[in-house]
Write a protein that binds this DNA or RNA. Structure first.
Lengths: 239, 239
DNA sequence: CGATAGTTTGATATCCTTCAAAACCTGTGG
DNA sequence: CCACAGGTTTTGAAGGATATCAAACTATCG
């Protein structure tokens, strides 16, 4: 099942027609290898990307070479629906794993949002959620120490993966190096490493072959004081 | 002149009719005192707020009482145009100074975006810029040390104030306590204080009675390696 | 002119970084 | 199936940036 349908379905009821329209968006699908950039800072955005399989990420590289990751895109996530309004990208979009990506011409987006108010609303919702996630990341970096910063991110990713049916029990794919985690959370890879060790010692997580296992999701949520309201999962209330 | 007209005008040419429509949005204006909350986390958003005078800010308070500020709204800024799609606010919106605020019912927004594609695009643009600013804040907190973190924020605020005609020469109102700066940048007020002292010693800034003066804007931009492309000031290219 | 919020100061603690090396994977080619 | 290469993880020691705490000072406003 198309992960975008699944995601939007967690906000609103989609008609069969809606579903079909989304399905049609995914007609121009291409496969790419991990590490590839879909679009780079400075380029003019012409297409809207819909991620169908794999993970992507938004990032910026500073003049001194430091990288900051500003978002993860999971299956079902769209890069900004209206991105084509801008003249130039202010950041890059790259792939963290091998991925399947649908490229959507802007006309398709405009058609849909004009003709299908229900879908337009649903896409709006997903944009608002993306922004809310970004705000929560700011809270995370700004106010939590390294340990809980990582733990909170894991909790979020678990819920988001679950939302599109990709959290198998308490495990999910997590194609992130410790370096990438550091660049996401404003930490060094070394410190991320030490915190992960502590999290493993305390039985909060287990990791193996690019997958994260969370033995006790409730406990993780409790310890990170996770408040899922920023994910706006209206219908399938999580906790 | 209505600051929203001025702001959107820096993205696209507005027709007289567009201008008038925006002007009409500001028919329901109310004045409020500093410190007041326009809307609180958990409440259902019904109105879209347009800030006409003064400063507002988005913030969250964590269970342990820590506050994180996630955005500043300057005159001409709208709180999320489509916020009413959500069932509950995931953060609060408060006033940093006495302010004049226009409350816009959602119908008005929907009417405008449906009937005036040009305005719809312009509003889209402003949403995209807000998001880009948020991303840059993440970079700021994640990758810059305290000194440049503050300096970079000042540079951004200068440009944004200038954009709506509120930077008088090299000075502008900055109704922020050092506490608020700390809560914005993930620092303590004490550390903010010491960094500000250093910035003054080095002649980078001067402060008095709630106003910030930047003797040499170019120098500030240079030292912070400020890249204004995230503000997407297409037309009036700044530097 | 006093009350209150905001700023400044100093001393000390700590979290996180830095640097550098070793150990460990994973995939690839022989 | 082994060996090697490159990326990733792990370890240790030492340094630095920022936090914490508490008190004094200074604006500002009614």
């Amino acid at each position: 099942m198309n992960p975008l349908i699944r995601k939007l379905g967690s906000f609103t009821d989609l008609s069969d027609e809606d579903r079909e329209l989304i399905e049609c968006l995914s007609d121009n699908v291409t496969g790419h290898r991990a590490g590839r950039d879909l679009i780079r800072e400075g380029e003019r955005p012409e297409l809207v990307f819909l991620l169908l399989e794999g993970w992507a990420y938004r990032y910026k590289v500073l003049p001194d070479g430091q990288r900051q990751i500003m978002a993860f895109l999971l299956p079902g996530d769209l890069c900004d629906v209206h991105i084509f309004i801008l003249e130039a990208m202010d950041h890059s979009l790259g792939l963290l794993s091998d991925a399947k990506v649908a490229a959507i011409p802007k006309q398709r987006i405009l058609e849909i949002t004009e003709r299908r108010p229900n879908l337009a609303r649903a896409l709006w919702w997903s944009t608002l959620v993306d922004e809310a996630v970004l705000r929560e990341w700011l809270v995370n970096i700004g106010r939590r120490d390294a340990y809980y910063r990582i733990a909170h991110l894991f909790a979020e990713l678990y819920l988001r993966m679950d939302m599109v049916g990709l959290a198998d029990g308490q495990s999910f794919d997590l194609p992130l190096t410790q370096e990438a985690l550091g660049d996401t959370l404003g930490l060094t890879a070394v410190h991320v490493n030490r915190m992960l060790q502590r999290m493993r010692e305390e039985g909060l997580i287990r990791m193996s072959r690019g997958a994260l296992h969370i033995p006790d999701v409730d406990r993780l949520m409790r310890e990170t004081q996770f408040d899922s309201n920023y994910l706006h999962l209206n219908r399938r209330l999580h906790r």
